[in-house]
Design a protein around this nucleic acid. Structure first.
Lengths: 140, 140
DNA sequence: TGTAATGTCTCTAGTAACTAGAGGTTCAAG
DNA sequence: CTTGAACCTCTAGTTACTAGAGACATTACA
């Protein structure tokens, strides 16, 4: 049994975040001491590790809730879990694609100015002001 | 001279967002009709286009504020604008790097489950629960 | 000129996923 | 038994918007 501070140290999840996860229904409300302080066991630690890992992978709180529900009903098909992971994967891929095109344009913008002049003539500002200089329209 | 709705159509920025930009100090408060409605001119349109473009490139409101201040003080060095753009570029690159490693792990997780079984044995859930299965720790 | 439809106004509150702080209570050590 | 750290709840702030209420303005048309 450990306190919220202990759990926080073990998992490197901040204390208010742990309470937030409990509030959000991700983390079961743990036992309390007579003085109303939270006391966690191994199961709580594992659950929080799961949540942390999923958050690091970019899963939303909502998606994690679905995954947890699946864990708690092992009789259901795992289609759903796979679907959530696959959706997350294409989301990540879309973000990468978008960021790559941003990278291109930002590189172009940064490169065309050596920073030595006055901002009056700054190409960074010009490039930002003039959308038509874009290589590609940047949303997609 | 056009209304906020007209500006919204031209720029494809939603009306409440335009008002939000004004409130945030990005967009100068425009003239008003006798009936208190906003009326924009060409300068307003250009400014909003600038803001939109910068937002699409992932610049924060704060960063855009700095860029606008630079535009309004053309006597200053453009170092600052270049610095902001460069910072934005390395930010984008860091994000890409992180997303690539997430992509790898998500692909591994998704691939090892064909979705046909019960969630009891689901590898997606196992992979998420067991951090040690990670190829690499996923934050960086 | 009247009226109806559409547009706009301000203000408040909600979103995601936390984070920070106030003001009070409990725990663990000595 | 006291001290100091850790903990409690609650509220509010963050970013960049988005949505809605209720009132007022503008425009089109008869």
């Amino acid at each position: 049994m450990f306190s919220i501070g202990g759990l926080s140290k073990k998992t490197k999840v901040k204390i208010p975040t742990i309470r937030y996860y409990e509030e959000a229904g991700l983390l079961a409300a743990p036992e309390r001491t007579n003085g109303n302080q939270r006391r966690y066991d191994q199961a709580g630690l594992e659950r929080l590790s799961f949540i942390k890992h999923a958050r690091e992978l970019g899963f939303s709180i909502e998606a994690i809730l679905s995954l947890i529900e699946l864990q708690e009903h092992p009789d259901r098909s795992c289609d759903e879990a796979t679907a959530i992971a696959t959706a997350q994967l294409s989301d990540v891929r879309a973000k990468i694609k978008k960021l790559r095109s941003l990278e291109k344009e930002l590189k172009r913008i940064s490169d065309c100015c050596d920073g030595s002049g006055l901002s009056e003539d700054c190409n960074v500002l010009t490039a930002l002001a003039d959308h038509t200089l874009c290589i590609h329209p940047s949303h997609g």
